[in-house]
Design a protein around this nucleic acid. Structure first.
Lengths: 210, 210
DNA sequence: TAGATTGTTAATCGATTAACAATC
DNA sequence: TAGATTGTTAATCGATTAACAATC
């Protein structure tokens, strides 16, 4: 019964995890909050506050044991669990997502890929055969899936989302501009808006040059 | 000489922009802060504070004129400018990025794509012929480019970044785990860490189920 | 004029930073 | 024991929210 952790802290956890993985791979076995702060471009205070949201993993006068801390953060993130997910949309972005990420180490298992375009149906991605859109319902009904990755345009998500919701899917990794959480407030939605990210970069570039 | 705008405000601008575009396309010509707050899952207060960072675009008793506000936010983001950019890495992710986004409307122009893998060199993406890695220096020297999109793994970015920096590239849209800003502090780096996003989703799913 | 809604100041809330006692 | 570094409380800072006067 950890009390509510702020989203800012949670968003930093993956970065701690990555740095700790690196340190562990380099054979480093202890690390101080000062050193962690340095790689995080943060402060030692913040590092200690962050970690102490979840428990006292450190040892006074010594620091934090790398392997143990990494493992703990992995557990906090829930990377040791495996959520079964389907990918909807095997266009350029969908294919990139399917092939680019190592889902196993991120807490997920990609079990099926669906696509409307007949030219893509039947092709293989990561050992998964792309299935036709029309099979979604049957598949979800007969397989334990709790998450959908949406790499479809907004207009395709809009008519699809009601079906997915009705089938019990509550977790979404959403690359589209459709605002799922606003329609269904009991869902967990992680949005990736690449265009927004690029606009932010645009702003920052222009700002520098006054 | 607008005084420093917080990053939180800036990150909200693309969403305002998207909603306003939608409203404009639907023929709506005025909108209140209350209505905008609703679609943003925010508060009317915050909307007014955000917009007033840049000027008084509204009219008391009336609201905000949609078309004008959209145009203004576009200008604030700098979408009317065009930064010339090159894409490094034509793997799955690079190809998805190159084909998926409409750079023109995001403040950028993609002018060249580079790749190490010989099998991909010479292929076409969005009317751009993929060029060999070895041409990067010549190309950047003889073309006005100020931004690099990096869709390469960390290990490939590490040796490349010094060259790019030496060639004067200071703006990066970075999909790798290499921490550019830590090495070169006068760069502007917008990171997209898909794995981190997925880990955050994982945390939130597990958190809901205690 | 009355109603609506902004612009802006003030109050609140929460996150970050600083400080230091606890302790390895 | 002395030195180092955590865990944790307190102080600061900044962002969000509330309130209301200005005004269309």
């Amino acid at each position: 019964m950890t009390k509510d952790i702020s989203i800012q802290v949670i968003k930093r956890l993956p970065r701690y995890y990555r740095f700790l993985t690196e340190l562990e791979n380099n054979g480093v076995d202890k690390v101080s909050s000062t050193k962690l702060a340095e790689v995080m471009s943060s402060t030692a205070s913040q590092v200690r506050q962050d970690l102490n949201c979840f428990g006292g993993f450190g040892q006074q006068g010594y620091g934090y044991p790398v392997a143990m801390l990494r493992k703990e953060i992995g557990r906090i993130l829930g990377l040791d669990k495996t959520h079964r997910a389907v990918l909807l949309g095997a266009g350029n972005l969908g294919r990139a997502i399917a092939t680019h990420l190592n889902f196993d180490s991120l807490g997920f298992q990609l079990t099926a890929i669906f696509e409307k375009d007949k030219k893509l149906i039947g092709t293989m991605l990561r050992g998964i055969t792309v299935m036709p859109d029309s099979d979604i319902e049957d598949y979800i009904r007969s397989n334990h899936v709790n998450t959908a990755f949406l790499t479809l345009p907004k207009d395709s998500v809009e008519p699809l989302i009601d079906k997915l919701y009705a089938l019990g899917i509550r977790n979404y990794w959403n690359f589209s501009h459709f605002d799922i959480a606003r329609k269904y407030s009991d869902t967990i939605v992680e949005n990736v808006h690449l265009g927004d990210s690029l606009m932010t970069l645009c702003y920052r570039i222009n700002e520098k040059n006054h």
